[in-house]
Design a protein around this nucleic acid. Structure first.
Lengths: 201, 201
DNA sequence: CTTTAATGTTAACAAAGTTAACATAAGAAA
DNA sequence: TTTCTTATGTTAACTTTGTTAACATTAAAG
């Protein structure tokens, strides 16, 4: 009975972990259950990953790479600067809504410690670099004064935190986007919203 | 030996749970450890709470009440509408920074299900009502047209999500507030930041 | 004083993460 | 080919946790 060495267990485990995580989130992912579902012994995953955090890190890295790629695609296809900021915000929220568990894994407390998984740290840094480059228009940085650069950085933080807040509140169902409106339009509306007091007529 | 009935175990448990949660977060709070630290048998907490979720719910309710009280205090002492929105945002972030674990408990996945703890749901509803009332200036609602009311609601969502995003990214250390600046000033700066493109000089 | 409800206790169970000890397969070295 | 080593699996154990059941004691109601 060739139960030993059934091929690339590592990838099958990762794939299965991806499925479980999508359905039940990081805390619902049990290594033992994962092993059983994969049809392998309960200790087998430890041959391929550094325990549970190791698997979560691997899934998080893959998620961050998809996230970064989607953001970059949007940034690359949007010429106008302001428009690009908005489009990035919408893409950011869209990723969160379409991949809530992955989004939570990327940002939440279940994320393995960055300093123990250098590749995870790199993946995270890269994704946020994409954001920041796109928002601060790095291609013009050479011409910027210090004050301009500082202002650009603040604008990046503002844009990021707005998108992040919307994403979080939506996936936590504290905010329910209107069903009769496109998600992007809803997000763009919130991003563009101006908090200064409207003129009293 | 009067080991039985040492007084109000419930409150001692709650207090101890509060301490543990502050240090280690909801997932670090183990019922058994809590019982041991409290000097009571490991099953005793079940006499006073509906399991782990019950304790978390109790802590979350208390936290939400403090949260709401702090927001309300700020809302009440700020006259000007725009200024009030900003001040609320700063207070929102301040609570998160000063009580990161409680903030996470209120919003995160470890929060017990609202539909199983009606008091928790009430506490949450109340806190967000305080926010929304303050932002939409409910005292003028009678004079509003439908369009104005919709716009006010959108402004409330925008303000909320901005504060929430800053709060989350700061407590997750994705954003590190400048050490040489007051936290509120930093937050107010981000809230006021305008994403429209700056004039090219 | 008796009865009962509240509150504690100990003991057990299942599930999870993890590690150790052992088994087998595959490939390198002889 | 035969042997040695490494990678990969397996089983079995240990610890911690959440939870419940069965039993004990106290406080209060009747």
């Amino acid at each position: 009975m060739g139960k030993y060495h059934h091929g690339d267990v590592r990838n099958v485990l990762l794939q299965q972990a991806e499925t479980i995580l999508t359905d039940e989130g990081p805390s619902g992912l049990s290594l033992r259950r994962l092993a059983r579902l994969t049809g392998v012994s309960e200790a087998a995953p430890y041959r391929h990953f550094d325990g549970k955090d190791g698997i979560l890190a691997a899934v998080a890295i893959a998620a961050l790479e998809r996230f970064a790629a989607q953001l970059e695609a949007v940034a690359d296809t949007t010429e106008q600067h302001e428009e690009r900021i908005m489009a990035l915000g919408a893409a950011y929220v869209r990723f969160a809504v379409e991949n809530p568990q992955h989004f939570r894994l990327i940002f939440g407390r279940e994320r393995p410690p960055l300093d123990q998984y250098p590749e995870l740290r790199d993946a995270a840094d890269n994704a946020f670099d994409v954001l920041q480059r796109a928002v601060t228009s790095v291609d013009r940085k050479a011409e910027m004064t210090l004050a301009e650069a500082a202002s650009a950085y603040n604008r990046a933080l503002a844009a990021w935190s707005r998108a992040h807040g919307i994403a979080m509140l939506v996936i936590d169902r504290m905010i329910v986007p209107p069903v009769d409106q496109d998600l992007s339009d809803f997000v763009l509306g919130l991003l563009a919203e101006d908090l200064t007091i409207p003129e009293s007529t």
